[in-house]
Every structure is written in C-alpha cells, then in structure tokens.
Design a protein around this nucleic acid. Structure first.
Lengths: 326, 326
DNA sequence: TTGTAAGCGTTATCAC
DNA sequence: GTGATAACGCTTACAA
C-alpha cells in the first residue's frame, strides 16, 4: 500500500508537505499541491484512516446502537442517519443490542475503543436508566433517539408520543368506539409512558373513563399483542390503541379468531407505520413516526453538536381498521 | 483514557510486559499477568483498538456491503452474519449502495482504508461484473453472497435460485395453471438469470412452451410489478412466478384492480419470504431464501478463509395465492 | 512555503 | 521472563 512517504520520496519532498497538501492546507504552494495530488493518483494512494485516526485521537466513525436492525422503524432511522453522515464524510458502525442492556454495554464499550466520533443510541427495552452509558461514554458525543433517558447529556430526538397517542385515541373516539383499551408497552421506557399519557388524556378530554383494567402493559410483539387482544375482548372493549404495530397485528389475529369484524365490531390503531400495516386486511390505521427524518435529525444534531431535545411529529394515517360504520 | 503505559507505571514495569500480559503471551509470569489484569481493571483500562490495529496492520472490523438495509432479506443476512462475527470478536461496518455501483466503489474504498479484516458483499443491481472490486480490494478477503460474480476470487454464498424457481413454477403447474409468466428481474445478475432458467426448465419438463413474450425483465419493485401484472393479463396469463416479493405485490395490485380473483383466476408465487407476504390477502406463496442462515454461512466462510461456493436451499411456502380450486 | 521532529498507543524484535 | 527500542502511517507544533 502506498503511503505519504512514498509520494514524498517520488517527489523529492517530505511527508509533512504531502500530508498538508492532501489535507488542503492553504499554506502549501498551489504547484506542489497539484503535483502531490497527481502523484497520489498515479501511485493509487488512499489515506490510511487508521493511522490518521490514531494521530488525531478520533475517527470519522459514528456508532449507531439500536435494539434490532430488522425492524423497519430502525432500519429507516439508520437510512436517514447514514445519508446525512456520509455526506459529511462519516461512516457508520452499527450495533444491535437485541433488546438487552448487557449487549448495549458491550456495544458502547466497543465503540468507545474504536474512538468513534459520536454515538447515536436508542436504548434496549430492559435498560432502566442511563447510568451504564454515562460511565462508558464519558465525553464521547451522544445523541439519543426514540427511546431516551432524560438524565443523560446530549441531544435527544423523540417522537411526539403523547400527541400521537392522543390523536390516535381521539380518532377512535370520534369514529364512535366506546370502550378503548391500549397495548401500552413497558412502563420502563419514557416513550411508552408518554403514549399511555396521550391515550389517557384523549379519553379524559372526551369524558370517557380511564380504566387500568384495559391497559395491557406488555412487550409490543405479535405474541403479546395476541394475548392482549383476547383479554380486551373479554373485558368488553370495542377498540384498541396499540403502542406498536406488531402487537396490533397480534391483536387482530385474536380478533379475527374470535369472529369479530374489524372495523365494524372492533377498531384498531397503532403507533409505527411499518410497511406491512397497509397490507393487512383490513389495512391498519397507524401513526407514522417519520423514522427516516428522525435519523436525519439525529445525525444533524450530532454534526452540529446540539444538546437540544427535538420532537418529530407523528402523522395519523387512517386506513380501514378504524372506520366504524355507524 | 488509561493506556498500557499508565498500567506499567503504576506497577513499576514496562509497557511491553503489560502488552504481553494483556495479550495472554505465555512468556509472562503468572504473577505479573494477574497483577496487570487487576490494575487494568482498577484503572478502567480498555485497549485502544485504533492503535492496535495500526500496529498490526489490520482491524477486527468486517465490512458488509449491501444494496439496501431496509429490505428484510438483507437485514436478516446482516443479523446472521453479525451473530457469528461478534462471537468471533469482530465488529461490523455496514455500507448501503442504494443499488449504485458508484456507491459500491466508494464503500469498498472506505472499507479498504479502514483496513478491514474482510468484506461481505452483495452487489448493486447495476454492477455488470466484478472488475471494480478486484482493483480496490486486492488481497482483502472477500465473501460474496446472493448477488455474486463468478470471476471474483473468494467464497460465494448463493441461494438455490434455479432449483427454487423450478420448484415454484412446478408448483403452479401442478396447481393447474396453464399459462405462467414471470417477472424475471434484470438479466445482468446471475441470481436472476438462474431463476429464469429454473422457471424455463419447469415449463419445459412439464411439456409447456417457454414464451419470451411473457417474460418481464424488469426491476423487481412494486411499481414495475404492477406494470408486469397488467401486461400479463393482456397476454392471457393465468399465473406469475416473480423473482422478487415486492414485484409480486405490485402484480397483485394490478390483478385486483382488474377484478381478477387470486388464486381462482390467477396464481402468484414469488422468491423472497418477506414478512409482509404472509399478511397479504390472499397470503402470498413464497420461496424462503433463509437469509439469516445465508448471513451466518457468509460469516463462517470469512472466518474459515473458505473459497468455496456454497448453496443455501430455498423452501417453498405454499399459501393462498397459488391454491387454485379445480 | 517547506522541513524537522515528536508522538498518538500498541506490538514485535531484539537483547539481557 | 522482562526491558529497551523501533516502528505502524499520519499529523502538527515549531523552526527555518
């Protein structure tokens, strides 16, 4: 592999000058800069970023830590972040935690060891607070997104969870559903706490009772959604707001199995406009969290060194599953 | 950040010994090894992998280059590869090419500059051969998967494209469909060439004519699938084998729009068991490519330095979309 | 405008 | 079994 020393030797100058020329340092003669660039191309030189990073004490890698890559929400966040970061000359190291804090800790340590320029992080569901992050990351810039802990420093990019859940629940109320339960997610996560708050607010502002008996605190996966669906039927619900799309899918499994018609007998709305939701029958009404935009915003927050909390609005997409015929 | 020098100073020994102790070199006294490890823990030492990589001339990063992260097939491949690689102490740097060779070239250069230990690569659709890879990667170990070029060195992990397509088409024939078209994908990619071959083989071995007029060579996305669907109807087809799931989705859009009943009037089977296929109505019959396993196999091939071509079998999953009532 | 020299943190090759 | 020293390739004060 060609090094700057090779270029320097070929040109009869020193590596420092080559380094400066390649870095676009203005204190280098136009003439030599051109010569260096020409020779670099000729010899097929490519900067050894490992050496460069070591010297500079940091890399142009940004770590992204997420629960699971195959969830459309997260892969879209990554897509958005990557677009902005690549433009700015950064590369992306992706770590999945599979929803385990253990793995999250390991991932953060690894990233720290690589001296990444920054970390974009959405916490594992079983993380209860940000202490483990504080110790590891120290002064590495951190941007949290979606699942965030307020006690950690740095920018936070969150969805408009409360407003979104409010909107979704209100939509069910206005469609004529009377007893609306919720698949709420785990109350260890701020995002789900807020969604539940939005749900409750909607009920109360419409004069409907908030009934803890039809709040299903659970993982938001298909299996638990199915169970929640069964319970909701037994509890006399005629609609569900689900804090996640996969749990809504599970709930509709249960509803269909029990012979209930959606949306006539039972309405469903969920947060997360995963691609499959429009293909379900009936198509599922959802809240679009704009994950791509969330990724872009997180990346920009990192680039700008922002410490602000930014809220990405959610957009209600009304499909069949909530169109009660009156 | 603590360095090995800090540990050495604290212990009154030299960095070399610390380095050896930490590396598990047998020529270091048990006693000092223990002392070093204790002190390392005490001072919160974490190896600077950047420095280590520079000195050793390679990293423990494996680059994965794929067209698009948000396709379930690829995110599952990544999942499988990551599992195996993490176990072996590697980390994963992911680059998306968005189906452009330009971006593929850029990604490969970046990875080379990071002196990655190896590259797992599935080509962009507009890559016509492997020349661009040869020049850049030189002696970096390469494993190609799914979309591969035979002229490139190193291991290749491919799906059983021909056999899968054969199976899918044969299934349609046996279900009673008479005139079966195909959404074939681009013929610049070996994977799609093989799928077309399997389709043709099935027709011919069943004594049915192979008609180029109902072979739709196209991108395999929803939009082009829709167009192919319309054409297939006009051409008097009563079934389609699609080389991709999204194009099959587009085709069913067209079929429904034209009032055709699936599977009674028209049968559909597709390669790629994307999650949404089971949620379509009617549910789409697919070929499961076992992407997770493909990722694991690719990672193992890298770890073992294999140069073999391995074929991952495809599994036909029969759902509603191909169950013709006779 | 360019050269000199030191150093980022680690590891490999010698010695002892 | 341990220490001294150099080197991986690059960057950056400082000097010229």
């Amino acid at each position: 592999m060609t090094t700057i020393t090779d270029i320097a030797n070929a040109l009869g100058i020193t590596p420092s000058t080559v380094s400066r020329a390649l870095a676009g340092n203005p204190r280098v003669k136009e003439e030599t800069r051109v010569a260096v660039e020409k020779m670099a191309k000729l010899l097929g030189y490519e900067r050894n970023v490992v050496a460069s990073n070591l010297r500079k004490g940091q890399s142009h890698i940004v770590g992204i830590v997420i629960p699971r890559i195959h969830r459309e929400f997260f892969s879209n966040v990554i897509g958005g972040a990557e677009r902005i970061l690549n433009q700015a000359g950064y590369n992306v190291l992706i770590c999945q935690t599979m929803e385990s804090v253990e793995a999250e800790i390991k991932a953060l340590k690894t990233l720290k060891n690589y001296r990444v320029a920054g970390v974009l992080l959405s916490h594992a569901i079983d993380a209860l607070n940000g202490n483990h992050v504080k110790e590891i990351l120290e002064d590495t810039p951190l941007v949290q997104f979606d699942r965030v802990f307020p006690d950690l420093p740095g920018a936070k990019i969150v969805g408009a969870n409360c407003e979104g859940a409010f909107q979704a629940t209100m939509h069910l109320i206005q469609a004529g559903y009377k007893r609306i339960g919720t698949i709420a997610g785990f109350m260890t996560s701020q995002a789900y706490i807020e969604r539940l708050a939005g749900y409750r607010l909607a009920l109360e502002s419409a004069g409907l009772p908030f009934d803890p008996a039809i709040v299903y605190e659970n993982a938001i996966v298909r299996e638990t959604g199915y169970e929640a669906g069964l319970k909701a039927i037994d509890a006399g619900c005629d609609a569900l707001y689900s804090a996640g799309a996969f749990s809504a899918l599970g709930a509709t499994d249960a509803l269909k199995e029990k012979g209930l018609r959606i949306p006539e007998d039972f309405g469903v709305v969920a947060t997360s406009n995963e691609g499959f939701t429009s293909l379900m029958s009936p198509a599922l009404s959802t809240l679009n969290q704009h994950p791509f935009e969330m990724g872009e915003t997180a990346a920009r927050a990192f680039l700008e060194g922002s410490r602000e909390t930014q809220v990405i609005p959610m957009e209600l997409i009304v499909r069949q599953s909530s169109k009660k015929q009156q």
